[in-house]
Design a protein around this nucleic acid. Structure first.
Lengths: 190, 190
DNA sequence: TCAAGTTATATAAACAATTTATATAACTTG
DNA sequence: CAAGTTATATAAATTGTTTATATAACTTGA
Protein backbone atom coordinates (compact mmCIF):
# COMPACT_ATOMS: atom_id res chain seq x y z
CA UNK A 1 0.00 0.00 0.00
CA UNK A 2 1.13 3.60 -0.34
CA UNK A 3 2.61 5.19 2.76
CA UNK A 4 -0.04 6.60 5.08
CA UNK A 5 0.06 10.37 4.63
CA UNK A 6 -3.14 11.25 6.44
CA UNK A 7 -3.82 10.29 10.04
CA UNK A 8 -7.03 10.53 12.00
CA UNK A 9 -5.45 13.28 14.11
CA UNK A 10 -4.76 15.32 10.98
CA UNK A 11 -8.36 14.95 9.85
CA UNK A 12 -9.82 15.94 13.22
CA UNK A 13 -7.38 18.81 13.59
CA UNK A 14 -8.25 20.11 10.12
CA UNK A 15 -11.96 19.90 10.91
CA UNK A 16 -11.39 21.67 14.21
CA UNK A 17 -9.33 24.45 12.65
CA UNK A 18 -11.91 25.12 9.96
CA UNK A 19 -14.66 25.06 12.58
CA UNK A 20 -12.67 27.46 14.73
CA UNK A 21 -12.34 30.02 11.95
CA UNK A 22 -15.60 29.61 10.07
CA UNK A 23 -17.97 27.48 12.13
CA UNK A 24 -18.54 23.75 12.12
CA UNK A 25 -20.97 23.87 9.20
CA UNK A 26 -18.08 24.98 6.98
CA UNK A 27 -16.03 21.96 7.95
CA UNK A 28 -17.25 19.91 4.99
CA UNK A 29 -15.51 16.81 3.64
CA UNK A 30 -14.42 18.83 0.67
CA UNK A 31 -12.98 21.68 2.72
CA UNK A 32 -11.10 19.26 4.96
CA UNK A 33 -9.78 17.31 1.99
CA UNK A 34 -8.63 20.54 0.38
CA UNK A 35 -6.85 21.67 3.54
CA UNK A 36 -5.06 18.33 3.77
CA UNK A 37 -4.39 18.17 0.05
CA UNK A 38 -6.05 14.79 -0.31
CA UNK A 39 -9.26 13.27 -1.62
CA UNK A 40 -12.31 12.53 0.53
CA UNK A 41 -11.33 8.89 1.00
CA UNK A 42 -8.82 9.27 3.85
CA UNK A 43 -11.50 11.19 5.75
CA UNK A 44 -14.13 8.51 5.30
CA UNK A 45 -11.64 5.86 6.27
CA UNK A 46 -11.41 7.44 9.76
CA UNK A 47 -15.04 8.24 10.40
CA UNK A 48 -18.20 6.51 9.28
CA UNK A 49 -19.83 9.83 8.45
CA UNK A 50 -19.57 13.57 8.99
CA UNK A 51 -21.60 13.47 12.20
CA UNK A 52 -18.97 11.28 13.77
CA UNK A 53 -16.25 13.63 12.60
CA UNK A 54 -18.11 16.61 14.03
CA UNK A 55 -18.40 14.79 17.34
CA UNK A 56 -14.63 14.31 17.28
CA UNK A 57 -14.11 17.97 16.45
CA UNK A 58 -16.37 18.85 19.38
CA UNK A 59 -14.24 16.72 21.65
CA UNK A 60 -11.22 18.60 20.37
CA UNK A 61 -13.08 21.82 21.15
CA UNK A 62 -13.58 20.63 24.71
CA UNK A 63 -9.87 20.10 25.03
CA UNK A 64 -9.34 23.62 23.73
CA UNK A 65 -11.77 24.99 26.31
CA UNK A 66 -10.03 23.15 29.14
CA UNK A 67 -6.70 24.61 28.09
CA UNK A 68 -8.17 28.07 27.61
CA UNK A 69 -9.75 28.05 31.06
CA UNK A 70 -6.60 26.67 32.69
CA UNK A 71 -4.58 29.51 31.17
CA UNK A 72 -6.99 32.38 31.52
CA UNK A 73 -8.98 31.84 34.72
CA UNK A 74 -8.07 33.83 37.80
CA UNK A 75 -6.31 31.18 39.85
CA UNK A 76 -6.81 33.07 43.09
CA UNK A 77 -10.59 32.76 42.70
CA UNK A 78 -11.49 30.08 40.20
CA UNK A 79 -15.10 29.92 41.26
CA UNK A 80 -15.84 33.59 40.92
CA UNK A 81 -13.98 33.95 37.66
CA UNK A 82 -15.57 31.03 35.83
CA UNK A 83 -18.45 33.07 34.45
CA UNK A 84 -16.13 35.77 33.15
CA UNK A 85 -13.78 33.25 31.63
CA UNK A 86 -16.50 31.47 29.70
CA UNK A 87 -18.06 34.66 28.39
CA UNK A 88 -14.67 35.92 27.26
CA UNK A 89 -14.12 32.63 25.49
CA UNK A 90 -17.52 32.92 23.84
CA UNK A 91 -16.53 36.33 22.49
CA UNK A 92 -12.97 35.48 21.45
CA UNK A 93 -13.74 32.07 19.99
CA UNK A 94 -17.44 32.10 19.16
CA UNK A 95 -17.27 29.10 16.82
CA UNK A 96 -15.38 26.96 19.29
CA UNK A 97 -17.78 27.92 22.03
CA UNK A 98 -20.78 26.84 20.01
CA UNK A 99 -19.11 23.60 19.10
CA UNK A 100 -18.36 23.11 22.79
CA UNK A 101 -21.88 23.86 23.98
CA UNK A 102 -24.13 22.32 21.39
CA UNK A 103 -22.89 18.91 20.55
CA UNK A 104 -24.75 16.06 22.18
CA UNK A 105 -22.65 14.03 24.62
CA UNK A 106 -23.71 10.45 24.72
CA UNK A 107 -21.12 9.73 27.39
CA UNK A 108 -22.83 12.03 29.91
CA UNK A 109 -25.97 10.79 31.63
CA UNK A 110 -26.22 12.91 34.77
CA UNK A 111 -25.52 16.41 35.98
CA UNK A 112 -22.89 14.88 38.25
CA UNK A 113 -21.01 13.49 35.26
CA UNK A 114 -21.30 16.75 33.36
CA UNK A 115 -19.97 18.57 36.39
CA UNK A 116 -17.01 16.25 36.77
CA UNK A 117 -16.16 16.46 33.12
CA UNK A 118 -16.30 20.26 32.94
CA UNK A 119 -14.76 21.42 36.17
CA UNK A 120 -11.52 21.21 38.05
CA UNK A 121 -11.93 19.38 41.39
CA UNK A 122 -9.75 22.01 43.05
CA UNK A 123 -12.49 24.59 42.68
CA UNK A 124 -14.89 22.70 44.94
CA UNK A 125 -12.06 22.25 47.43
CA UNK A 126 -11.32 25.95 47.29
CA UNK A 127 -14.98 26.80 47.89
CA UNK A 128 -15.25 24.27 50.69
CA UNK A 129 -12.26 25.75 52.51
CA UNK A 130 -13.20 29.37 52.03
CA UNK A 131 -16.79 28.93 53.16
CA UNK A 132 -16.23 26.16 55.65
CA UNK A 133 -18.85 23.96 54.03
CA UNK A 134 -18.62 20.29 53.06
CA UNK A 135 -17.15 19.25 49.73
CA UNK A 136 -20.59 18.04 48.67
CA UNK A 137 -22.12 21.40 49.47
CA UNK A 138 -19.33 23.14 47.62
CA UNK A 139 -19.83 20.95 44.56
CA UNK A 140 -23.54 21.72 44.57
CA UNK A 141 -22.77 25.41 44.67
CA UNK A 142 -20.24 25.14 41.90
CA UNK A 143 -22.61 23.10 39.78
CA UNK A 144 -25.25 25.77 40.11
CA UNK A 145 -22.77 28.28 38.81
CA UNK A 146 -21.91 25.92 35.94
CA UNK A 147 -25.58 25.65 34.99
CA UNK A 148 -26.02 29.41 35.20
CA UNK A 149 -22.91 29.91 33.10
CA UNK A 150 -24.22 27.52 30.44
CA UNK A 151 -27.40 29.61 30.40
CA UNK A 152 -25.41 32.79 29.94
CA UNK A 153 -23.30 31.11 27.28
CA UNK A 154 -26.36 30.00 25.36
CA UNK A 155 -27.78 33.49 25.43
CA UNK A 156 -24.54 35.18 24.53
CA UNK A 157 -23.37 32.84 21.83
CA UNK A 158 -26.62 31.79 20.20
CA UNK A 159 -29.79 33.61 21.05
CA UNK A 160 -28.40 37.13 20.97
CA UNK A 161 -24.69 37.64 20.45
CA UNK A 162 -25.18 41.39 20.62
CA UNK A 163 -25.98 41.39 24.33
CA UNK A 164 -23.26 43.39 26.07
CA UNK A 165 -20.68 41.61 28.15
CA UNK A 166 -21.05 44.16 30.91
CA UNK A 167 -24.74 43.42 31.31
CA UNK A 168 -23.93 39.71 31.46
CA UNK A 169 -21.07 40.15 33.92
CA UNK A 170 -23.39 42.06 36.22
CA UNK A 171 -25.97 39.29 36.25
CA UNK A 172 -23.30 36.69 36.77
CA UNK A 173 -21.97 38.57 39.75
CA UNK A 174 -25.49 38.63 41.18
CA UNK A 175 -25.89 34.90 40.69
CA UNK A 176 -22.46 34.26 42.15
CA UNK A 177 -23.37 36.18 45.29
CA UNK A 178 -26.76 34.53 45.58
CA UNK A 179 -25.31 31.01 45.36
CA UNK A 180 -22.51 31.92 47.73
CA UNK A 181 -24.77 33.40 50.33
CA UNK A 182 -27.15 30.51 50.08
CA UNK A 183 -24.37 27.99 50.72
CA UNK A 184 -22.90 30.03 53.57
CA UNK A 185 -26.30 30.17 55.28
CA UNK A 186 -27.07 26.54 54.64
CA UNK A 187 -23.99 25.91 56.80
CA UNK A 188 -25.60 27.62 59.81
CA UNK A 189 -29.29 26.82 59.64
CA UNK A 190 -29.52 23.69 57.45
CA UNK B 1 -52.72 33.82 -12.90
CA UNK B 2 -53.91 30.61 -11.27
CA UNK B 3 -55.71 31.02 -7.96
CA UNK B 4 -53.33 31.20 -5.00
CA UNK B 5 -53.49 27.83 -3.29
CA UNK B 6 -50.46 28.18 -1.03
CA UNK B 7 -50.11 30.97 1.49
CA UNK B 8 -47.09 31.97 3.54
CA UNK B 9 -48.90 30.79 6.66
CA UNK B 10 -49.34 27.33 5.13
CA UNK B 11 -45.65 27.14 4.31
CA UNK B 12 -44.52 28.21 7.77
CA UNK B 13 -47.03 25.94 9.47
CA UNK B 14 -45.89 22.98 7.38
CA UNK B 15 -42.26 23.70 8.24
CA UNK B 16 -43.16 24.02 11.90
CA UNK B 17 -45.12 20.77 11.97
CA UNK B 18 -42.33 18.83 10.32
CA UNK B 19 -39.82 20.40 12.71
CA UNK B 20 -42.06 19.52 15.62
CA UNK B 21 -42.19 15.85 14.73
CA UNK B 22 -38.77 15.25 13.22
CA UNK B 23 -36.55 18.23 13.94
CA UNK B 24 -35.90 21.37 11.94
CA UNK B 25 -33.21 19.71 9.81
CA UNK B 26 -35.92 17.49 8.34
CA UNK B 27 -37.98 20.48 7.27
CA UNK B 28 -36.45 20.59 3.79
CA UNK B 29 -38.01 22.38 0.83
CA UNK B 30 -38.85 19.02 -0.63
CA UNK B 31 -40.55 17.73 2.52
CA UNK B 32 -42.56 20.93 2.88
CA UNK B 33 -43.58 20.87 -0.78
CA UNK B 34 -44.65 17.25 -0.43
CA UNK B 35 -46.71 18.00 2.65
CA UNK B 36 -48.45 20.85 0.84
CA UNK B 37 -48.79 18.91 -2.40
CA UNK B 38 -47.04 21.60 -4.42
CA UNK B 39 -43.69 22.22 -6.06
CA UNK B 40 -40.84 24.14 -4.40
CA UNK B 41 -41.76 27.38 -6.12
CA UNK B 42 -44.53 28.56 -3.77
CA UNK B 43 -42.07 28.10 -0.89
CA UNK B 44 -39.36 30.17 -2.52
CA UNK B 45 -41.87 32.83 -3.39
CA UNK B 46 -42.44 33.45 0.34
CA UNK B 47 -38.89 33.21 1.63
CA UNK B 48 -35.61 34.14 0.01
CA UNK B 49 -33.99 30.97 1.32
CA UNK B 50 -34.36 28.15 3.81
CA UNK B 51 -32.63 30.06 6.60
CA UNK B 52 -35.36 32.67 6.46
CA UNK B 53 -38.00 29.99 6.56
CA UNK B 54 -36.33 28.35 9.55
CA UNK B 55 -36.31 31.70 11.33
CA UNK B 56 -40.05 31.96 10.68
CA UNK B 57 -40.56 28.42 11.96
CA UNK B 58 -38.58 29.37 15.08
CA UNK B 59 -40.88 32.35 15.60
CA UNK B 60 -43.82 29.97 15.32
CA UNK B 61 -42.10 27.77 17.91
CA UNK B 62 -41.88 30.74 20.26
CA UNK B 63 -45.62 31.24 19.92
CA UNK B 64 -46.09 27.56 20.72
CA UNK B 65 -43.93 27.91 23.83
CA UNK B 66 -45.87 30.94 25.03
CA UNK B 67 -49.14 29.04 24.66
CA UNK B 68 -47.70 25.93 26.28
CA UNK B 69 -46.44 27.89 29.27
CA UNK B 70 -49.68 29.84 29.60
CA UNK B 71 -51.64 26.57 29.71
CA UNK B 72 -49.35 24.42 31.79
CA UNK B 73 -47.62 26.67 34.32
CA UNK B 74 -48.86 26.65 37.90
CA UNK B 75 -50.71 29.94 38.02
CA UNK B 76 -50.55 30.13 41.81
CA UNK B 77 -46.75 30.27 41.66
CA UNK B 78 -45.55 31.19 38.19
CA UNK B 79 -42.04 31.99 39.32
CA UNK B 80 -41.37 28.76 41.10
CA UNK B 81 -42.96 26.62 38.40
CA UNK B 82 -41.14 28.12 35.44
CA UNK B 83 -38.21 25.73 35.65
CA UNK B 84 -40.47 22.70 35.82
CA UNK B 85 -42.60 23.92 32.96
CA UNK B 86 -39.67 24.44 30.62
CA UNK B 87 -38.10 21.09 31.43
CA UNK B 88 -41.41 19.34 30.87
CA UNK B 89 -41.71 21.12 27.54
CA UNK B 90 -38.18 20.07 26.63
CA UNK B 91 -39.15 16.46 27.27
CA UNK B 92 -42.56 16.51 25.63
CA UNK B 93 -41.58 18.57 22.62
CA UNK B 94 -37.83 18.21 22.26
CA UNK B 95 -37.70 19.44 18.67
CA UNK B 96 -39.76 22.51 19.40
CA UNK B 97 -37.66 23.28 22.42
CA UNK B 98 -34.45 23.17 20.42
CA UNK B 99 -35.95 25.34 17.73
CA UNK B 100 -37.02 27.73 20.47
CA UNK B 101 -33.63 27.87 22.18
CA UNK B 102 -31.12 27.80 19.39
CA UNK B 103 -32.22 30.17 16.72
CA UNK B 104 -30.43 33.51 16.71
CA UNK B 105 -32.67 36.47 17.47
CA UNK B 106 -31.54 39.54 15.68
CA UNK B 107 -34.33 41.54 17.30
CA UNK B 108 -32.89 41.03 20.80
CA UNK B 109 -29.88 43.10 21.84
CA UNK B 110 -29.98 43.02 25.62
CA UNK B 111 -30.87 40.73 28.50
CA UNK B 112 -33.65 43.18 29.31
CA UNK B 113 -35.21 42.66 25.90
CA UNK B 114 -34.84 38.91 26.11
CA UNK B 115 -36.47 38.99 29.52
CA UNK B 116 -39.40 41.06 28.30
CA UNK B 117 -39.94 38.88 25.29
CA UNK B 118 -39.89 35.61 27.20
CA UNK B 119 -41.73 36.35 30.41
CA UNK B 120 -45.12 37.47 31.58
CA UNK B 121 -44.94 40.82 33.44
CA UNK B 122 -47.33 39.47 36.06
CA UNK B 123 -44.62 37.18 37.38
CA UNK B 124 -42.39 40.04 38.46
CA UNK B 125 -45.42 41.71 40.05
CA UNK B 126 -46.24 38.49 41.87
CA UNK B 127 -42.68 38.21 43.17
CA UNK B 128 -42.58 41.85 44.15
CA UNK B 129 -45.75 41.53 46.20
CA UNK B 130 -44.86 38.24 47.85
CA UNK B 131 -41.37 39.32 48.88
CA UNK B 132 -42.09 42.98 49.41
CA UNK B 133 -39.27 44.02 47.08
CA UNK B 134 -39.32 46.56 44.27
CA UNK B 135 -40.46 45.58 40.80
CA UNK B 136 -36.91 46.11 39.57
CA UNK B 137 -35.55 43.77 42.19
CA UNK B 138 -38.23 41.23 41.34
CA UNK B 139 -37.38 41.44 37.66
CA UNK B 140 -33.71 40.88 38.40
CA UNK B 141 -34.58 37.82 40.43
CA UNK B 142 -36.85 36.48 37.74
CA UNK B 143 -34.25 37.12 35.08
CA UNK B 144 -31.71 35.12 37.03
CA UNK B 145 -34.13 32.24 37.09
CA UNK B 146 -34.70 32.64 33.34
CA UNK B 147 -30.95 32.44 32.71
CA UNK B 148 -30.63 29.42 34.97
CA UNK B 149 -33.55 27.78 33.20
CA UNK B 150 -31.95 28.36 29.81
CA UNK B 151 -28.85 26.67 31.20
CA UNK B 152 -30.88 23.73 32.38
CA UNK B 153 -32.71 23.61 29.05
CA UNK B 154 -29.45 23.59 27.10
CA UNK B 155 -28.13 20.74 29.20
CA UNK B 156 -31.32 18.75 29.08
CA UNK B 157 -32.20 19.20 25.46
CA UNK B 158 -28.79 19.30 23.83
CA UNK B 159 -25.75 18.31 25.81
CA UNK B 160 -27.22 15.27 27.52
CA UNK B 161 -30.89 14.47 27.03
CA UNK B 162 -30.52 11.43 29.24
CA UNK B 163 -30.04 13.46 32.42
CA UNK B 164 -32.94 12.66 34.73
CA UNK B 165 -35.65 15.21 35.27
CA UNK B 166 -35.59 14.58 38.99
CA UNK B 167 -31.94 15.53 39.25
CA UNK B 168 -32.65 18.68 37.28
CA UNK B 169 -35.74 19.59 39.32
CA UNK B 170 -33.67 19.29 42.48
CA UNK B 171 -31.03 21.70 41.24
CA UNK B 172 -33.67 24.09 40.01
CA UNK B 173 -35.29 24.09 43.39
CA UNK B 174 -31.91 24.92 44.94
CA UNK B 175 -31.37 27.78 42.54
CA UNK B 176 -34.90 29.03 43.11
CA UNK B 177 -34.31 29.15 46.85
CA UNK B 178 -30.92 30.79 46.49
CA UNK B 179 -32.25 33.58 44.27
CA UNK B 180 -35.27 34.02 46.49
CA UNK B 181 -33.27 34.26 49.68
CA UNK B 182 -30.82 36.61 48.10
CA UNK B 183 -33.58 38.98 47.02
CA UNK B 184 -35.33 38.80 50.38
CA UNK B 185 -32.11 39.69 52.19
CA UNK B 186 -31.19 42.40 49.75
CA UNK B 187 -34.41 44.03 50.95
CA UNK B 188 -33.16 44.27 54.55
CA UNK B 189 -29.45 44.93 54.36
CA UNK B 190 -28.88 46.26 50.84
C1' DT C 1 -64.72 39.89 -25.89
C1' DC C 2 -60.18 39.33 -26.66
C1' DA C 3 -55.07 40.53 -26.53
C1' DA C 4 -51.45 41.75 -23.30
C1' DG C 5 -49.61 41.60 -19.14
C1' DT C 6 -49.09 39.49 -14.67
C1' DT C 7 -48.26 35.95 -11.46
C1' DA C 8 -48.88 31.44 -8.97
C1' DT C 9 -47.25 27.31 -9.79
C1' DA C 10 -44.70 23.49 -12.24
C1' DT C 11 -40.79 21.42 -14.42
C1' DA C 12 -36.23 21.03 -14.84
C1' DA C 13 -31.58 22.16 -14.44
C1' DA C 14 -27.46 23.98 -11.86
C1' DC C 15 -24.90 23.62 -7.87
C1' DA C 16 -23.14 21.87 -3.58
C1' DA C 17 -22.51 18.38 0.02
C1' DT C 18 -22.48 13.53 1.59
C1' DT C 19 -21.71 9.01 0.71
C1' DT C 20 -20.56 4.85 -1.94
C1' DA C 21 -18.29 2.21 -5.81
C1' DT C 22 -14.52 1.30 -8.42
C1' DA C 23 -9.72 1.78 -9.63
C1' DT C 24 -4.82 2.18 -8.77
C1' DA C 25 -0.50 2.19 -6.86
C1' DA C 26 2.74 1.11 -3.32
C1' DC C 27 3.82 -1.51 0.37
C1' DT C 28 4.31 -6.26 3.13
C1' DT C 29 4.99 -11.03 3.34
C1' DG C 30 5.66 -15.62 1.99
C1' DC D 1 9.23 -11.56 -7.00
C1' DA D 2 4.07 -12.76 -6.94
C1' DA D 3 -0.11 -12.23 -4.17
C1' DG D 4 -2.52 -9.90 -1.10
C1' DT D 5 -3.51 -5.73 1.32
C1' DT D 6 -4.63 -1.04 1.92
C1' DA D 7 -4.14 4.09 1.55
C1' DT D 8 -5.56 7.02 -1.58
C1' DA D 9 -7.73 8.77 -5.97
C1' DT D 10 -11.36 9.24 -9.26
C1' DA D 11 -15.88 9.22 -10.24
C1' DA D 12 -20.66 8.42 -9.73
C1' DA D 13 -25.03 8.20 -6.95
C1' DT D 14 -27.89 10.67 -3.88
C1' DT D 15 -29.92 14.41 -1.57
C1' DG D 16 -30.82 19.21 -0.65
C1' DT D 17 -30.90 24.20 -2.12
C1' DT D 18 -31.46 27.46 -5.39
C1' DT D 19 -32.29 29.46 -9.95
C1' DA D 20 -34.09 29.42 -14.83
C1' DT D 21 -37.56 28.56 -17.83
C1' DA D 22 -42.23 27.27 -18.99
C1' DT D 23 -47.18 27.24 -18.48
C1' DA D 24 -51.65 28.25 -17.31
C1' DA D 25 -55.13 31.05 -15.32
C1' DC D 26 -56.38 35.30 -13.95
C1' DT D 27 -56.99 40.77 -14.58
C1' DT D 28 -57.37 44.75 -17.25
C1' DG D 29 -57.93 47.85 -20.82
C1' DA D 30 -59.11 48.42 -25.75
Amino acid sequence: MPKQRITKEMVVEAAFEIARKEGIERATVKAIAERLGCSVQPIYSYCRNMDGLRADAAQRARQFVREYVAERADKTDLFRSMGHTYVRLAREEPHIFRLYLFEERKDITSLEELYRSETDPRVAMEISEKLGVSIEEAKGLHMNMLIYTIGVGTIFSVISPSVSEEEIFEKQEEAYKAFLKSAAEGKNNG
